[in-house]
């Protein structure tokens, strides 16, 4: 397997996982590049293209959590990632998508990862459980709770804007 070809094939996936999680383009690009550097070192241990994809998702997910925790330690809570509820315009699709991304970014780290893997990568809960190495039930409950929180926040925002 050729590294350059693998980078071309998967850079959008790895970058997007990091970007939706961190909401910082430059840091997401740096993180993705680190992941590919690690891939270069581990490539001989990976057996197939499917294994590479699984490995990239797993390593990116763990790196995202590490990076987020490091940032919290350095800077405290990240105000950028908190949703600006009063500024949302829920009926505008473009703005609503942006608002939704901000809401996702405000979820707790573990729930955020599950949501991103489920809706960016379109993975089944069982696949997410394997990538994150957690029980299937935990994935389902995190997903369920995250959707409930997002729905509530969206409704709450819509209600606020309507007033």
């Amino acid at each position: 397997m050729d590294l350059e070809q693998l980078v071309r094939e998967h850079q959008q996936m790895v970058f997007s996982l990091a970007y939706h999680f961190l909401r910082d383009r430059a840091r997401a690009e740096d993180l993705a590049q680190d992941v590919f550097l690690l891939l270069h070192q581990k490539l001989h241990e990976l057996e197939s293209p499917g294994h590479v994809k699984f490995w990239l998702r797993r390593v990116t997910a763990h790196r995202c959590i590490d990076e987020s925790r490091r940032r919290k330690l350095r800077n405290g809570p990240d105000l950028e990632s908190l949703p600006e509820q009063g500024a949302m315009a829920p009926d505008d699709d473009f703005l609503r998508a942006g608002a939704l991304r901000k809401l996702v970014a405000s979820l707790p780290e573990e729930a955020r990862l599950v949501v991103i893997l489920r809706y960016q990568e379109d993975l089944e809960p069982m696949e997410i459980a394997e990538i994150l190495n957690i029980p299937l039930g935990t994935v389902k409950s995190r997903l369920h709770r995250a959707l409930a929180v997002l729905r509530w926040r969206l409704e709450h925002t819509k209600h606020k804007v309507a007033q």
Binding site: L3, E4, V7, R8, Q11, Q12, M13, V14, F15, S16, Y19, H20, R25, A28, E29, A32, Q33, D34, F36, L37, H40, D93, R96, A97, G98, L100, R101, V104, V115, I116, R118, Y119, Q120, D122, L147, L150, R151, L154
Partner: peptide, 27 residues
């Protein structure tokens, strides 16, 4: 409602293109 939210999430979390090539400088 849940289906709407799920499709909105799929739309909002679509993959994005990085602004630069991510091929690492291999030592």
């Amino acid at each position: 409602m849940n289906d709407d939210l799920e499709s909105e999430l799929r739309n909002a979390l679509r993959r994005k293109q990085p602004s630069r090539d991510l091929m690492p400088a291999i030592p």
